[in-house]
Design a binder for these strands. Structure first.
Lengths: 258, 258
DNA sequence: ACGCATTTGTTCGTATGTATT
DNA sequence: TAATACATACGAACAAATGCG
C-alpha cells in the first residue's frame, strides 16, 4: 500500500538513520534480525511453521519481496526450511531425515547403519581453563562434562568428550542422555531450549593415549582423527565444546569445498 | 517491454514445454545454464567482468531480475564475484586476497606467513586404477603425477601427491611448476584453461610411512592427517585427484558446519 | 573538487505458476 | 475444486559504490 516510508508499528523496523546509531542497514536485514529474535525467544518453536510471507509482510509493514529476501538468507543459514505449498518451518535437529546433521563421518562402503551410543560419564564439573575460554565462562564456572562412545555396527568408532555451558544445561544427567531416543542436539532443543545453529571444527591427527586406545579398542599411539568442535546458538553464543576422537580405519570425514 | 513470452532470439532460452524433453526448468535456471556455458567456453575469462545485468537481460530477452537471480546463484557457488558499482567478475584462483582457496590448513598461532613450495617430481605416467576411477579415465590412460612439499616457516608441513587428467594437462613440467609464482590452480587456469570450481575431500588419520616420514621430517608411524581431494571443473567433470599428508603438530584443518 | 554515468543493491507492486491440503 | 503458501517473473524507482571527465 504505502510507497512512502511506513509508519512504524509495534513490530516495524527502524527507519534508516533514525537512531544515529551503528550504521545503515538494508530493510531486509532488519527484518532478518527481527525474525531471528522471534526464533531466539521461542515465539516459533523448532519444527513449527512460521507465519506466511504475506502475514509477516503485514506484521513488519514491508513488502512480501523484502520478507522473502530475509527468509532466503535464513534458509541459506539453515535456520529456516522452506517447503513450497506448505510454509516455512523452523529448522530442527529432531525429525530430520539425516540424523546427526553435524557428524561428517561416513563409512567407506557407504552403508550407513544405525548408530549406537554409550554414555560413559556425565557430571557437573568446574570448567578447565581451555573450556572456559571457549565457552566464554570464567575459569572454575560450572560446566557439564559428558564422555561417550559411538558404535557403528557394534564397533566403537567415536569417543566424544563434551563440555556444555553449565547454567544452560542445568539438570542434564546420564540417565536422560541414555533414555532419549534421537540425536543429542534434539534433546538439547526439546529439554533445554538450546538450538545449535552452526559450529567450527579444528581437525588434527593424533596418536591414541592409553584411555582412548582402550575405549576405541586400538593400540596406544594408533592414529586417530581429533575433531575439536565449538558449537554456537543464536547470537553467536558458544554453548558446547567437544573433542571427538575418530577411528578412521573404515570411515572418513567428508568435506565439500567450494 | 514484452510481458508475453518473448520471441526466442539466437541466445534466447527455450520456452517452457517446447521440447517435450527432460522437464520444466525455471527461466532463471536456463539463464544460469547459458551463463555457465559462456564461462566454460571461455567467452569471459577468469578475472574479467561479464556484461552488465541490463546487457545480459537484453541478450537473453528476459528481465533484469531474472538475470539477477541466475547470477545470485552463480555467485553463491563462487563462479562469479559481484562488486557493487564495478560489475560482476569471473572468479579466479589468481589475484585473490586469500591465496590457496582450497587449503584449509591454519597455524595454531594464527600467523600466516608465506608458503614455500618444492616440487619433488613431475612426470607423465599411466594412471593407477584408483586414480583412473576417480578421474573417469580408463586404467592405463595418461596422467600427470606431481609430488611436492609445502613449507610453513621453513618447515615441511604438507606432502602432496597430485594426479591430473593427462590430456587436459599435456605439457606440464616440473620447471613450469617451479617457475610459476602463485597458486598452482592459478597456473592451471592461465596455462591450461582449466578452472577448479569445487572439490570433495575425505579426511583420515594415518601413520607416516617411511618416505613420507623422511620428507616431512617426522618419525615413521607419526600421525598425519590424510586429505584426499577430488577437484571438479565445469560440468562436474573431475580433473584432479590428490592426496595430501599434513603434519598437524602446529597446524589444524579448519571447517565450518552449518 | 564536483558532478555525471555506469553498475550493482534494495524495495516496492503486481501477476502468474506450482505444490499442498 | 478451492484455498493457501511458496516460487517465478516482470517492471519500476531509487540508493550506494565506483570511476571518469
Amino acid at each position: 500500500m504505502a510507497t512512502q516510508p511506513p509508519t512504524p508499528g509495534p513490530d516495524a523496523p527502524v527507519s534508516s538513520g533514525e537512531t544515529g546509531g551503528p550504521a545503515f542497514s538494508p530493510l531486509y536485514q532488519q527484518i532478518k534480525a527481527l525474525i531471528t529474535r522471534s526464533l531466539q525467544s521461542g515465539e516459533w518453536k523448532p519444527g513449527e511453521a512460521i507465519p506466511s510471507e504475506v502475514d509477516l509482510a503485514a506484521r513488519y509493514r514491508v513488502s512480501q519481496g523484502t520478507v522473502r529476501k530475509a527468509i532466503d538468507e535464513l534458509a541459506a543459514e539453515n535456520l529456516l526450511v522452506r517447503r513450497q505449498g506448505k510454509g516455512t518451518f523452523v529448522a530442527t535437529h529432531a525429525e530430520e531425515k539425516i540424523q546427526y546433521r553435524f557428524l561428517r563421518l561416513t563409512p567407506d562402503d557407504g552403508v550407513t547403519g544405525p548408530i549406537e551410543r554409550k554414555v560413559i560419564e556425565c557430571r557437573r564439573q568446574r570448567a578447565p581453563s581451555e573450556v572456559a575460554r571457549a565457552l566464554d565462562l570464567k575459569a572454575g564456572d560450572a560446566a557439564v562434562q559428558i564422555r561417550r562412545l559411538l558404535y557403528f555396527r557394534a564397533r566403537p568408532v567415536v569417543l566424544d568428550d563434551i563440555w556444555l555451558h553449565g547454567t544452560l544445561f542445568k539438570g542434564l544427567t546420564a540417565e536422560r542422555l541414555t533414555d532419549y531416543r534421537g540425536p543429542m542436539y534434539a534433546l538439547f532443543e526439546q529439554e533445554f531450549g538450546v538450538r545449535m545453529i552452526r559450529a567450527e571444527e579444528k581437525l588434527r591427527a593424533v596418536g591414541a593415549d592409553a584411555p582412548a586406545a582402550e575405549l576405541l579398542q586400538v593400540a596406544p599411539g594408533y592414529p586417530l582423527l581429533s575433531v575439536e568442535r565449538l558449537s554456537y546458538t543464536y547470537g553467536d553464543k558458544p554453548v558446547e565444546f567437544r573433542r571427538g576422537l575418530y577411528n578412521t580405519a573404515s570411515h572418513f570425514y567428508r568435506n565439500e569445498l567450494q
